[in-house]
């Protein structure tokens, strides 16, 4: 796109700048639309598993439900509790939302369709997702209310615990791919399984890593069964308790943008990103972005499926799973995989 703006007579720097701004809009606006639709899908899947109808009133089949909800919160009054720490209280949802959008900069949607093709892509995602805890912690503290505060403490402990094992799982993938660049990680999965299937998930050593990554991504996005931060039976609504109108909507949008990010990470790291599932020439006629979106949607369906069927963990069970099961197993697999690659690839 930079070349196009250069052809309009701009110098390189400004062409790059405007191309980047356009790229950001091209990612962020469809993402917001996707979040609105995915909330609808989430509620429909959840309802179908519970043998309910779900949203079916606004628009055909209830398709416009999320937009109606958005309009509703937009028209509501923003209430700031008088005992709240005002600046941080307002900043918290903005941080959550910004961070949730920021990570999309390095996600490759198709070959070459990526805003920033940097060589530390995966580390960037790890860095940005470690920031997302601040929105919750700031909200919990600034609300000056005990339930949000409990929620904030739970959130910070939970995110730190699961980030450790996510880090080790990513190390396994990086060892196989030999790069931190997400585009190269996808390309290295081409024909990975016996030269037929694309994706690291078909590797016996990496399959358990994918299962752990999927569960960790549920924990990282604080989805059921790890939604201890919003456990309504104990903490009202957790860190969002004191929030209303758009400040609440920003949390909501940020949460779903994060969920979509984790779904697309599952796709990119283990299911071959934009590559078709089978390494067979006719399948490459389908545009890569279609495969990418289909796979991401499939993972989102799995997220909803888990939400509708699994009961919430107790807090000590959550910690036990993170520290006593995932951490040792992922550490063991780092050793196993590096040993295996040492003997086969680098011998």
């Amino acid at each position: 796109m930079t070349a196009f703006f250069q052809s309009l007579g701009m110098n390189y720097e400004w062409a790059w700048f405007i191309a980047t701004v356009c790229g950001i809009l091209l990612i962020a606006l469809p993402l917001m639309l996707a979040v609105a639709m995915i909330i609808y899908v989430d509620r429909k899947v959840w309802a179908a598993i519970n043998l309910r109808r779900g949203p079916n009133v606004v628009g055909p089949l209830g398709l416009l439900q999320s937009f109606a909800d958005g309009l509703k919160v937009f028209l509501q009054e923003t209430i700031i509790p008088s005992a709240a720490n005002k600046g941080i209280f307002i900043l918290a949802p903005i941080v959550t939302f910004t961070v949730a959008l920021g990570a999309w900069a390095v996600i490759p949607f198709d070959a070459g369709v990526v805003l920033a093709d940097i060589n530390v892509g995966l580390l960037y995602i790890l860095a940005i997702s470690s920031l997302s805890v601040y929105g919750v912690v700031m909200a919990g503290w600034a609300s000056n209310s005990k339930y949000p505060f409990f929620s904030a403490m739970r959130a910070s402990a939970q995110m730190i615990s699961y980030e450790v094992s996510i880090g080790f799982i990513l190390v396994c993938v990086v060892l196989y791919a030999g790069s931190f660049n997400l585009t190269e990680i996808v390309m290295s999965q081409k024909g990975h399984g016996l030269g037929i299937v694309n994706g690291y998930v078909f590797n016996i050593l990496l399959f358990p890593m994918w299962v752990m990554f999927f569960i960790s991504s549920l924990a990282e996005t604080q989805r059921v069964p790890f939604d201890l931060t919003e456990a309504e039976s104990e903490l009202v609504a957790g860190y969002q308790t004191e929030y209303s109108s758009m400040s609440f909507a920003l949390f909501w949008l940020g949460e779903y943008a994060n969920i979509l990010l984790m779904c697309s990470l599952n796709t990119i790291l283990f299911f071959g990103g934009w590559l078709p599932p089978i390494d067979w020439a006719p399948l490459y006629y389908v545009p890569g972005i279609i495969w990418f979106l289909l796979k991401t949607f499939f993972f989102f369906f799995m997220f909803s499926w888990v939400m509708a069927t699994v009961p919430r963990y107790r807090y000590d069970q959550l910690m036990r799973l993170g520290w006593k099961i995932f951490l040792p197993i992922s550490l063991l697999f780092v050793v196993l995989i590096s040993g295996w690659l040492m003997f086969t690839r680098y011998a």
């Binding site: 860095a127 470690s130 920031l131 601040y134 503290w141 995110m159 980030e163």
Partner: peptide, 21 residues
């Protein structure tokens, strides 16, 4: 990236955790 992951993502969260309480 290491600065953000280690200091912002882990160390500062623990700081904040302690100071908040």
């Amino acid at each position: 990236m290491l600065l953000v992951i280690v200091y912002v993502g882990a160390v500062a969260v623990l700081f904040l955790f302690v100071v908040m309480m």
